[in-house]
Write a protein that binds this DNA or RNA. Structure first.
Length: 526
RNA sequence: GCUCUGGUGGUGUAGUCCGGCCAAUCAUCUUGCCCUCUCACGGCAAGGACCAGGGUUCAAAUCCCUGCCGGAGCACCA
């Protein structure tokens, strides 16, 4: 008895036991651990992206995990753009919407969307309050000078400044009366704390460059992440924070502020960095941006780019990405995400609906060859009729005109040998033609003859298949023209692909679309 | 240098808190077979791991110590 039969039998004998078993299965699929101190209906989490570009694949982890927990606990998902550095991590105005669109593609929606750059007055208010509590002081030390003192566990002279002066100097910061580097506001923590990373960190600094968002362009005094994020997490009721190990010390830093305000710190989980195999390109927004600017990549959705837009264009469902991301769990060590796992998840999702078509590739090391199919021991039929989907005969057959056909040369058998043109019949390779052989399908079943894909020489669609490894040209069978743009199909014996456009315009990319193609498809995976 | 933090098959993960039922789970992966007019889907089978060394114990992936290796922070970046 196999598993299915066993279950059917159990269903007959003891339906309640079967239900238990199935409930267990569901439990087992919860790879993500339960959140500490989480109660249904009371969980609030946030993703806090820096909008300095569209997302790479690794970014999918945050919405995937938060979204999954949101569903489990009936919680709230906040998307807060931490755009508080108009200079070195300058926000990209298009990225705000690009990120929200990426989240939507993954199958989630933020319940609230906030921009830190809208909230400067709130941060100033809390800074003032912190100063009143004796929790912050203005400091005009240079970064190097302060660092030297700090590393020795020594306070700088500004630490004991009169509160009145601090207040005045901070208001001058807010009013933009200092230039970048002249004055900062520090949180008074513990100057000889054993961890140097926690000693009197900077909460606000001056930035001369205006913020790209018009609404925030007049501000010059900007909070640092630890202050802004810490205040916002409390104000927006965040109960559980998930962040990378690079922010391991943030909670410890922010606790000093929370203590001054008498706030309770949320639960925090850290996770390691995600690395991807498969791509030669680094998983970093700035690196990808540079490659695009240098013309090495054609854009954020270049199939070679490790971005969400790229996998989306290739026909990979957001759900597949989410499953792979939640499978990574919540470990604090760095993890490698195998793209094969994303592909396996996607294959499960698309295989059933993907109609089958033939694509004969024309590659330098395996060029397409053109031959005539001629009558042999029986007249050669005029066309082949392979099924649109092997498991859905109701979807009907395709009609592929024979006569003169193209094959990939590696599929062409040696002279004298036979090959089965899928959906058509058996042919024998003779000199420059294929001679029809009146053979039964048993020759295939017996393993004597290979089955290959093929297309008509004249009626096929010139196709550009864009893949992670680069572009491949080829010829797709005529009926693919009836498919919808955006459909995910399977090119038999090659793999799944998303139909991107018919009769596309040319581009000036080297080796890119010339405008001569009838079809552009993006390769998803085998 | 100081401070955090982690190490289960190729990859990810369960188990580690509360030692035994763990000769270690599940998925992916690789290989073989079956199915099949696809190298897809499906089915079957096989392969492959507790970082190392000590200690405690009747018993250690699990507790303790040491070592090795890795990641992160010590920014007027996020």
């Amino acid at each position: 008895m196999n598993e299915t039969e066993r279950r059917e039998r159990l269903g007959e004998l003891a339906p309640e036991r079967l239900a238990e078993l199935e409930a267990d299965d569901e439990e087992d699929e919860r790879v993500l651990p339960d959140l500490p101190n989480a109660e249904a209906g009371e969980v609030v989490m946030r993703a806090a992206p820096n909008p300095n570009g569209p997302w790479h694949i690794g970014h999918a982890r945050m919405p995937a995990v938060i979204g999954t927990y949101k569903e489990r606990y009936d919680g709230e998902f906040i998307c807060r753009f931490d755009d508080t550095d108009p200079e070195t991590k300058r926000p990209d105005l298009d990225a705000y919407d690009a990120i929200l669109s990426d989240i939507e593609y993954l199958g989630f929606e933020a319940d609230r969307v906030l921009r830190a750059s809208d909230r400067l007055e709130t941060y100033y208010e809390h800074a003032r309050e912190l100063i009143e509590h004796g929790g912050a002081y203005t400091c005009s030390c240079s970064g190097e000078a302060f660092s030297a003192l700090k590393n020795d566990g020594e306070a700088c002279p500004h630490r004991e400044k009169d509160e009145e002066i601090i207040r005045e100097e901070f208001e001058a910061m807010v009013d933009g009366e200092y230039a970048a580097g002249e004055m900062v506001l520090r949180v008074r923590t513990d100057i000889d704390h054993k961890n140097p990373a926690l000693r009197d960190w900077v909460a606000f600094r001056m930035i001369d460059t205006p913020h790209p968002r018009e609404a925030a362009a007049d501000y010059r005094c900007w909070p640092m992440l630890d202050f802004q994020s810490g205040v916002d997490d409390h104000l927006t009721g965040v109960t559980h924070i998930i962040r990378g190990i690079d922010l391991q010390d943030s909670a410890k830093r922010q606790r000093f502020v929370y203590d001054y305000f008498g706030w309770e710190y949320p639960e925090v989980l850290h996770w390691g960095h995600v690395q991807l195999d498969e791509y030669g390109v680094s998983l970093s927004t700035s690196t990808i941006k540079e490659l695009i600017e240098a013309g090495e990549l054609t854009g954020w959705d270049d199939p070679r780019a490790p971005t969400i837009r790229s996998v989306r264009r290739r026909g990979i469902r957001g759900e597949a990405l989410v499953e792979s991301m939640t499978d990574l769990g919540m470990s604090t060590s760095d993890v490698d995400l195998a793209m094969s796992s994303v592909y396996a998840n996607n294959r499960d999702l698309v295989d059933d609906e993907a109609d089958r078509f033939f694509l004969v590739r024309d590659r330098a090391d395996d060029p397409a060859v053109e031959l005539s199919v001629v009558d042999g021991d029986a007249p050669a039929p005029a066309a082949g009729r392979p099924a649109r989907h092997p498991e859905h005969p109701d979807r009907g057959d395709r009609t592929i005109p024979a006569g003169r056909v193209r094959l990939e040369s590696s599929d062409l058998p040696p002279t004298g040998e036979r090959v089965w043109l899928k959906g058509y019949g058996c042919v024998r390779h003779a000199d420059d033609e294929l001679v029809y052989v009146d053979a039964d399908i048993d020759v295939v079943r017996d393993g004597d003859v290979d089955v290959v894909h093929w297309v008509p020489a004249a009626e096929s669609l010139g196709t550009l298949l864009r893949t992670v490894e680069g572009d491949v040209r080829g010829y797709a069978e005529p009926e693919i023209a009836d498919a919808e743009t955006d459909a995910v199909v399977q090119f038999e014996r090659i793999g799944f692909a998303r139909l991107d456009s018919f009769d596309p315009a040319g581009t000036d990319e080297p080796d890119g679309p010339t405008g001569e193609e009838d079809l552009i498809a993006y390769f998803a995976h085998p």
